[in-house]
């Protein structure tokens, strides 16, 4: 049973939970995988740091919380700093490079940065930064098929915003693929 534990962190309002929801939905509804999403619900979930946990597996997820996460999507430095020590040595950190300054995770870790907020602003609204991150995550990790992620975006975002969100997804994905072609992504 191969299970990938993913931690997503950011500020409240950045769309941390929606990002987790779309990853889980892409895996379990549009791809032949299993996925659970859990999220922080306490006072900590309001305003400041916000966190979601997604477990993606090829069989039923029995324990729905991260114990030794392999993957982190970080959209705020505070959230990143809070959770970075729980990551395994061979972890992958996908981060918003204007908001997060990654520490040295050691030689076995992979870290991939993207100026997702700037890209989102260029597309018309910084609110889609989470979807730029999603596309980037899809490209650099290859964990969930591109089409499944894209379908999950289309069916999860508010009605009328599909086009903007799909553009955001494509932008993040293309940026991830470019990095890959330049050999800056080891996968």
């Amino acid at each position: 049973m191969a299970t990938t534990e993913i931690r997503i962190t950011g500020f409240g309002g950045q769309g941390v939970i929606l990002l987790g929801y779309i990853i889980g939905k892409a895996a379990s509804i549009f791809s032949d995988q299993h996925a659970t999403l859990t999220q922080s619900f306490g006072p900590e979930a309001r305003g400041s740091a916000c966190s979601a946990q997604v477990l993606v597996s090829d069989s039923r997820v029995l324990y729905p919380y991260v114990t030794a996460p392999q993957l982190m999507l970080a959209m705020s430095h505070d959230g990143y700093a809070t959770h970075k020590d729980s990551m395994i040595e061979e972890c992958t950190v996908v981060y918003e490079e204007d908001l997060v300054k990654p520490f040295d995770h050691g030689p076995k870790a992979k870290t991939y940065g993207i100026p997702a907020t700037r890209f989102a602003e260029e597309l018309g609204h910084k609110i889609v930064l989470n979807i730029v991150m999603l596309g980037f995550f899809g490209a650099v990790t290859g964990l969930i098929p591109h089409d499944a992620l894209r379908q999950a975006v289309e069916t999860s975002v508010p009605g009328g915003t599909e086009e903007l969100n799909l553009k955001a997804f494509d932008k993040g994905f293309e940026y991830g693929m470019e990095l890959k072609e330049k050999g800056e992504v080891k996968v």
Binding site: S28, I29, A35, T36, L37, T38, F41, V61, P64
Partner: peptide, 10 residues
């Protein structure tokens, strides 16, 4: 319980 209530799954 809260875990099942707030856990999202297929």
């Amino acid at each position: 319980d809260e875990c099942v209530g707030h856990m999202t799954e297929k």
